[in-house]
């Protein structure tokens, strides 16, 4: 009987570990495959040169710049709006019909497929507000997509700040905003920052929302204003791997581009982890 129990224990434990290993394995294989095939394409020239000869040669400089540009746009839009909404929900909103409605809206927003965001971006930003297909329209569309994530995680970060800090400040005659600004936001800041970075790194890799709103196949120049069109890494990968007239010829470039996109996303995630660690340490003891 005891033996059987032990056996069950081992099986249970083993299958749990196996699940964890499978997850790591999938990631490992993916990265290894892309790195192995993309590595030969990577060179300094690849990173700082324009695409040449119908994209069969040259680099992806404007593609990288386009992604960075549109991500900055997304940041400027979604972080102030998302964090403000989170502060409202966490600190000010009283539980009631309105608050429940807002929360339900945010949850539903998070469930909308990204292609729908793209179509919405066309209707509202490109046509409605007449921003045209541009960095601005794409940045705003990606911002919408990121908002629910930023609101939810920022609210989570605000909720982890002990109630003692708020009450302590209020009991000393702080106004509500003073208490929030000096005694809540600084301690929620590491959490808000890191999760915002994660949200943005997600947005940087999205294709559907920018598809109709501003990204283009090829541009011989860099976008000079927010009303210009742009090239972007995820779309470039899509073009090189499915739409190009000489797919086999550009395959190494497609892998190279993928590697760059993954590297950017990883670097952002790494930055988030380092920031969380550093800032977290600063605010504890």
């Amino acid at each position: 009987m005891m033996k059987f129990k032990r056996f069950k224990e081992i099986i249970g434990f083993g299958s749990l570990i196996l699940s964890a290993v499978i997850v790591v394995l999938i990631l490992g294989i993916m990265i290894f495959d892309i790195a192995a095939k993309g590595f030969e394409a990577i060179s300094l020239k690849f990173l700082i040169d324009f695409p040449r000869e119908g994209m069969t040669k040259g680099g992806i400089f404007p593609v990288i710049i386009g992604t960075i540009f549109v991500t900055i746009m997304t940041t400027l839009f979604s972080i102030p709006l998302g964090v403000s909404a989170a502060i409202y929900l966490s600190e000010y909103a009283k539980e009631g019909r309105f608050t429940r409605f807002v929360r339900a809206a945010i949850r539903n927003l998070a469930g909308i497929p990204s292609i729908v965001y793209g179509l919405f971006g066309v209707a509202i930003f490109v046509q409605g507000l007449n921003f045209g297909t541009s960095v601005l329209s794409s940045g705003l569309t990606l911002g919408l997509l990121t908002l629910p994530w930023i609101i939810a995680t920022s609210e989570e970060a605000l909720k982890t700040v002990p109630q003692d800090y708020r009450e302590g400040a209020l009991a000393l005659g702080a106004t509500k905003w003073q208490a929030i600004r000096s005694n809540v936001l600084p301690y929620a800041f590491p959490g808000i920052l890191t999760s915002s970075i994660l949200g943005l790194s997600r947005a940087a890799g999205e294709t559907a929302p920018i598809l109709f709103t501003g990204v283009v196949f090829y541009l011989p120049w860099l976008p000079g204003s927010v009303f210009d069109q742009f090239m972007a890494l995820p779309y470039h990968i899509y073009i090189l791997s499915t739409q190009h007239h000489a797919i086999d010829l550009v395959r190494p470039l497609a892998y190279g581009t993928t590697l760059v996109l993954i590297a950017i996303v990883f670097m952002l995630n790494l930055a988030a982890i380092i920031l969380r660690y550093q800032l977290g340490r600063k605010y504890k003891k």
């Binding site: 800090y165 009991a171 005659g173 605010y283």
Partner: peptide
Amino acid sequence: VVEIRKKIGMIFQKPNPFP
């Protein structure tokens, strides 16, 4: 209430210094 709380201070059960 802000003025009231400046005149009526409070010490909490669990010491709650700010970090």
